[in-house]
Write a protein that binds this DNA or RNA. Structure first.
Lengths: 326, 326
DNA sequence: TTGAAAGCGGTACCAG
DNA sequence: CTGGTACCGCTTTCAA
């Protein structure tokens, strides 16, 4: 930058100003500085800038898995809304609380201006670090009544209640439940709780062997679904929630010639294109993943600009989409 | 850090060493420093560290779209291989060269230690900035004979040749081609060229109206496929390449009761689970996306550690997986 | 509108 | 093995 300054015959201070607030520099000076930048090929050093100003424009986001399209959707919403003003640093926690803690530590060391967590269970240290740092933080996805700082999402429990109730309303009585592993994953814990609550309220038996954890992916969902149904041929419906488990189940049923929903009904969750594109199209819960990302960004931006927030916890809700699988 | 130093009754220099190279500090001193860190809740400032050392441990990656699972797969490979030693900053170029340039500029300002580009077409400025900065850079995905710095991937043209040749070998003569838009996307340009070359070599007519660009996603693929086939009922096969276009085509065919491959055959590309899970399972080109990410990381790491590379361009190849759709 | 001086919080380098 | 002393490259603050 000093090169640019001497090229343009001004002080470094003026160059710095020209870069950050062109209006505060006379147009003639500005022109000379711009030319000098062009000639020297100067690339500002944001490390130095951030160190001096004690501000950065990097938002750190931690997702359980980069492979899961649902998280990607929220990342995309965040990225779009932040685009231009802020940059995104992304870490994959591998569905582990320790992974999340390590990522948080790294983000804080990097002095990110905000952190977005796609998990609302944390180690005690994670929560403490975040609180002590006073950094802006949004927990997205599952709604948290008492967030570290802010939260945007929907109630997984309510959503699971809605789907289970819907299945019961359609006349199904023996209803199974398939999801990813519940360990360290409050979203699954909540959904399973919602499913069990509604079963109980309806006076239906909640059988542990109707509940199954699945590997991820289409093939994981297929295996879990086929396994569960073959072990319990008396099942009438299965609530298959998370990832692309339910589409995997449908595709497997098609291959086996099981008719859906006659032989076995499926209630799904998440509404990517694939839930709609399989035959039969899945009755599913639509979660506003992209919107959650956008809203999280908006809240962060508000906070960083010192505006006061209307709400620290924003419920974006969900919808039950009736299609043909149940 | 000066707090920690006085707490532990050593100099800042010793604290700094204890953090970066614990072995170089006596165990007693180390213990005191660790305690002091614990008590004070000290979080190192990597901005300052990086500024002073002129090194960072952040790798910047630019993908055309965060929504596309194929890119995500490479990100995951990179992230896994870098995990622990480096952090990842991800930018979405929105399939545009200007978007890529802006991201490169931001990364350079951030002084990332390396850049990974999932595109091998660049603006002149992009290439110049990267070259001038002398930063480690890997272009992944499509193989580049003359990379800015390094390249890992496979030949899209050869892959398209292989699939087109395969379709011809199966006896299909009127073969269509569906892909994402070719603009700013050398991967598509290459594949289309490969398709046309083989058609020509086989003495088959290359009809422009057999070639179609599609919106992305399952539904995009479905629309393009149905549209093309309805306009040209005489088509015998379609090479549907990229994204999840081909699975979308199959799913749409299923809904319409078109039998595949009897009514119309499909050759696909990319081999995610979905290509395998649809019925009929897709005959497709398998690209080593995850491995490309890992290899890119390995090459970067080698470079950053000053080791000399065996090869600046690494071809990881592709495979044609025969299944039931053609 | 412009500039000088004093850091930001660490690390490199050399000495002890 | 430990410490002192210059910076790293920019911004803040205050003055002109």
């Amino acid at each position: 930058m000093s090169d640019v300054a001497s090229e343009a015959a001004v002080s470094m201070m003026t160059v710095s100003r020209a870069l950050r607030d062109p209006a505060s520099v006379s147009s003639e000076t500005l022109r000379r500085i711009r030319e000098a930048i062009e000639r020297t090929g100067y690339v500002p050093n944001r490390l130095a800038g951030s160190l001096a100003s004690r501000r950065t424009d990097i938002v750190g986001m931690i997702v359980p898995s980069l492979r899961n399209a649902q998280y990607t959707e929220t990342i995309k919403g965040l990225s779009d809304a932040l685009s231009g003003s802020h940059y995104l640093m992304i870490a994959d926690s591998g569905y582990s609380l320790e992974g999340e803690e390590a990522a948080i530590r790294a983000f804080l060391a990097q002095r990110v201006c905000a952190v977005v967590l796609h998990n609302t269970m944390h180690t005690a240290r994670s929560a403490a670090m975040l609180r002590d740092s006073g950094i802006a933080c949004v927990e997205v996805g599952n709604l948290v009544p008492d967030p570290i700082d802010m939260s945007v999402g929907f109630s997984n429990r309510d959503a699971a209640r809605a789907m289970t109730g819907y299945l019961i309303g359609r006349g199904y009585r023996r209803i199974g439940f398939i999801s990813l592993p519940a360990k360290d994953n409050e979203r699954i814990v909540e959904r399973r709780a919602g499913y069990l609550q509604v079963l109980e309220k309806a006076g239906l038996e909640a059988r542990p062997d109707y509940v199954r954890e699945s590997r991820s992916g289409l093939i994981g969902g297929a295996e879990a679904f086929v396994g569960l149904v073959e072990e319990h041929p008396d099942l009438e419906a299965v609530f298959v929630t998370g990832d692309v488990l339910a589409p995997g189940a449908v595709l497997a049923a098609v291959r086996r010639g099981w008719s859906i929903p006659q032989r076995i009904a499926i209630g799904a969750s998440d509404d990517d294109e694939i839930q709609e594109s399989v035959t039969p199209a899945l009755t599913t819960l639509r979660f506003p993943r992209y919107e959650i990302g956008r809203k999280a960004a908006a809240m962060l931006l508000d906070r960083l600009q010192g505006r006061t927030l209307d709400e620290r916890v924003v419920d974006l809700g969900f919808r039950l989409i009736e299609r043909d699988s149940a």
